[in-house]
Design a protein around this nucleic acid. Sequence first.
DNA 1: CTGGGGAGGGGGCCC
DNA 2: GGGGCCCCCTCCCCA
Length: 572
Amino acid sequence: MELPNHAKQLLLQLNQQRAKGFLCDVIIVVENALFRAHKNILAASSIYFKSLVLHDNLINLDTEMVNPSVFRQVLDFIYTGKLLSSLDQSSEQNFSALLTAASYLQLHDLAALCRKKLKRNGGKPLPGKPSTPGPLSRLRLNNQRLSTSTPAGPKNHYPTPSDADQPQPDEGLRDKLSDDEMFVGSSARNGNGGNGSSNGNLSSGGSAGEPDLGLDLSKKSPPSAGTATDALSPHSNSQESPQSASVSTTNSASLDDSSTTLPGLDACGSETTDLNPKASEETQNQPDGPPPQKKSRQGARKNEWPKKEASGLKSEDHDRPLVNGVIVGPKDGRSSDQAFQCKDEEDAGENGQDHTDESGQSDGESAGGRGGTGGGNHSANYVYRQEGFEPAFGDNLYVCIPCGKGFPSSEQLNAHVETHNEDELYIKEEGGTFVKEEDEEEAEDLSAAVGPSSFGSEARPFKCTVCSKSYKDPATLRQHEKSHWLTRPFPCNICGKMFTQRGTMTRHMRSHLGLKPFACEECGMRFTRQYRLTEHMRVHSGEKPYECQLCGGKFTQQRNLISHLRMHTSPS
DNA sequence: CTGGGGAGGGGGCCC
DNA sequence: GGGGCCCCCTCCCCA
C-alpha cells in the first residue's frame, strides 16, 4: 500500500509553508537578503546545511559564493527539485553561479544538474573565469572547515582574502570537488583582494575587510534559566559547529517568537519579504509564559515591532548597497548627532537623492589603527543634507565636512573627498570650540537634577584632540575618537547603517533579526537588552526610584523623570 | 482634542 | 566585547 504522490504533496506543502514563513526555524542571510526555511529540509538536502543548522538558527552565507538571486533559485530547487530558471536566469553565467553555489553548499544533485546543463550548452563548463571572483579558495576554505573537527580560527571569524591565501589543501575534501569545481582555482587571490581592501596594512582592529556578518548576535543569555526563556540556549554552540568559522551563528530561539517576524529585507523581492500577518499573529499569540498584565497593550506593542522595522527599512532601502552613504552629522556630542543622522538619512531617502552610488564599501577603515596616513581608498560619503544647512550651501547639498565645501552631486563630493588624507578624516569642529547651546544647558541642568554627571572630577589624562573630552584610559579615548571619524567603521550588513562601535552594530543587528534574549519572568515579555528588562521589571515591582524634586512625582524610568522635568522647566 | 505619564525601541558612548 | 547608562523617538493610555 502506497500513497501516490505522497512525497510530492508533502514537498508542496512544505514549500507553501516556506513561502508563508510558517514554522520556518532558520534564517539564511545572503548579503542583505534574508531567507526563511526549515532546518529539516535543509539538513536533508545537504550535509553542509545539516551541520550548520544543527546548532544555528541564523546562517550567513559567503556572499562571494552565492548571491541572493542565486540562493533563491537554490532554495527553490531544494524545495521543489526543479530548477526554475526564468529567461534571464537560464544564461550560462547563471548556471555557473548556480554551480558555484551548489558546490559551496554541497548540493551535489544541483551541481550535477548545472554541470550537465553547462556541458550541453557548450562543452566546457565554467569557461574562462568563474562568475564570482576566486571561488576556489573559498571552496577550499569552506571544505577545509568542514573537514576539521575543531573550528578554524576564532569564533565567528569570517574568511578574509588572507585566509584564502593560506595554502592548506585538504585532500579529502578536494576529492569531493569535481573537476569542474577544481578548475576554477585560477585565482589564488592576492592579499589585497579585488574589492578594495587596499590597505595591506590593516590593523588588528580588524574591522576593515572583515565583513561583520560573522557576528554572534545571540551572546546574551537569559537572566535566569527556565520559564519563558527556556528556549534560549545560554551558550553559543558555534564552537561545536564545524562551520562556525564561516557563518554567524545564533542559538537564540527567538525564532519561534513573535519577534522573528522579519522585515522585508530581501533585495530580490522574493517571498522572504512576505510578512504574513496571520502567521505573525499565530506566533505572537503563542503563550510564552504567563499572560502579560496589560495584555492588550503589550499585544499592540508586539505588533508594532514589525511595523516599525518596516518603516525603518523603506522599500527604497532595498535597493541600497549594503554599505551605503554615510551621513555624518556635526559631532558636538551625543544626542544631536543621533537625531541628525536619522532624520538626514530618511530625508535623503525620501527625496530620492542619490547618495548610494559611491564606491560603497567602507573598507580600509583602518579601524583601531590610527597611525596610517596612507590615505588610500576612503570611500567616505560626506553627504550632508540637513535642512538648516541647505540655504547656506545653495544647491550644493553635498558638503564635505572637513573643509565645508559644497557640491551639487555625490560624485563630485566623492571626487573631492579623495583629496583629503586620512588625518583629515576627523571632523573639524568649528574653531575647535564648542558652543553650548541652550538645549544642552537645559539637559545639563536636568541631568544634574536627576543624578551626578557622568564626567566626574577624577583624573582623565587622555584628552581628545578634536573635542577636548578626556578619558581615563587610552582605549576609551581611541573608542571615542572614532566618533569623529567621517567614516564609521562598522556597517550593518543588512541595512548598511554605519556605527562607530562594533557593539552598537551588533546590538542593532539583533533588532533586525528579532533576537530578544532577555525575557521577563513575570509576563514573558522579551527585550533586546538587559537594561530594558531591568527597567521593565520595575513595572512589576512597582518600584519608582526616580523622584521629581519639584513636585514629588515618582517615576519608574529616569527618562520619564527627565521628560517630566522638562515640563517644569519649559516656559509653557 | 490635548497634555502628561508609562513604556518599548533604537543609537551613542563611556566604562 | 559586553554592560550600563543616557538620550531621543514613538506609541498608547488616560484624565
